[in-house]
Simulated assay, not measured.
Amino acid sequence: MQLKKDWDVQAKVACKDRAARHQPWDRQKMSKVVVVGDLNVGKTCLINRFCKNVFERDYKATIGVDFEIERFEISGIPFSLQIWDTAGQEKFKCIASAYYRGAHVIITVFDMADIKSLDHTRQWLQEAMRENEPDTCLIFLVGTKNDLLPPEERERTEKDAIRLATEMHAEFWAVSAKTGENVQGFFFRVAALSFEKCILKDMETGIPASIGRGDGIMSDYAKLDEATSQDTKKGCC
C-alpha cells in the first residue's frame, strides 16, 4: 500500500496489540468515503478503476447515489472503505446531500481539462461539510483526466490545484482513470490515513469506530512498520 512513513507511535502499538489478541470487533472497522464534484468530472470512472480495475468510455451519469466497498487488511486488522459515489447533477443534490452525513473522508473531484470544475470544488466541500462536524473529516482534492493535458498545461493546473488544496486543508492528487495513473496509490493513501484515524479515535473514546460490517475478504495488505514497494491486490468488491 501507499503508506505514510510517520505513523503515530500509539497507533502502531495499538494495532500490534489488537492483532495479537484478535479482537472480534475489529472486523467491523470501516470508514465512510464520500466522493463529490461536478457532473462528468470522472467520479464514477475513478471509483471503478480502483474497485473493478475497469475504464468505461461510454459515460453514464450517476443517478442519486451509489457505493462500493473495498476491503483491506492493515497490520493484521480487517478494514474497509465504504465509497459513496454521488451525482453531480443539480436535480440530485438534495438526494445526495443526505448521504454526506457521517463521512470520515471527503474527496472533492475536478476535471483537470475543465478549470471551472476546479473552482466549483469549494462549494462541493462546503455542502459536504454542512452535514458533518468541523475537523472530523479527512479532505482530498483530486484532479482527474490528467492524461488529456500537455505537460505545460498540466503543470499550471496542478499549481492552481495545490493552492486551492492548501486553502481547503486538503491533500491534492492528480490521477487518470483511463491509464490508471496514481489511482491505486491514491486510494491506498486514503485507506492508510483513515485507518490510522480510526485507531486513534478508538483509543480516545474506547469505542470502536465503525459504520457497518466488514467481513474479512483477503484483498490488500499493508504493514505499519514499513512501506512495501510492490502493491498486491488479490480481489476487490
Score class of each variant (00 low, 15 high):
I207M: 10
P208A: 15
R101W: 04
A61F: 06
S31L: 03
A165D: 02
A14N: 04
D38W: 05
H120G: 01
C137E: 08
A19R: 10
L118G: 02
L224C: 11
K93T: 03
F67M: 05
V34P: 01
R27Y: 07
F110N: 01
I211C: 10
L81N: 00
Y59F: 15
Q2K: 14
M168F: 08
V9M: 13
K234P: 07
G206R: 15
S31G: 08
N132Y: 03
M203C: 01
E204N: 12
R130W: 09
Y59K: 10
G102V: 07
K145F: 08
E153L: 14
G76S: 06
G42M: 07
E133W: 03
H104E: 09
V109Q: 00
Q82H: 15
T121W: 03
R122G: 05
F72E: 02
R101C: 07
Q23P: 03
I217M: 11
G143W: 06
K4M: 08
K178P: 06
G102R: 06
I207G: 04
I107C: 06
R101Q: 11
Q82R: 12
G64L: 04
F195D: 02
I199W: 08
A98C: 11
R156K: 14
A209V: 15
R122D: 09
L3A: 10
W25D: 12
L81H: 00
F92I: 04
K234M: 06
C15K: 05
E68S: 10
A209C: 14
K5D: 14
G216F: 11
Y59L: 09
R122Y: 12
L46E: 04
K234L: 12
S229E: 11
E127K: 04
T62Q: 02
R57H: 08
I77Y: 00
M1H: 08
Y59P: 02
D119S: 13
L193R: 08
C237D: 02
D160A: 13
E133L: 08
L138K: 00
I63L: 11
K52T: 01
W84M: 00
A161S: 05
N146V: 15
T179Q: 05
A161L: 00
I69L: 15
H120D: 06
T166C: 06
T44K: 07
G216S: 09
I217Q: 13
G216I: 06
K91C: 07
D66M: 14
G180K: 02
S75L: 02
F72H: 10
W84F: 11
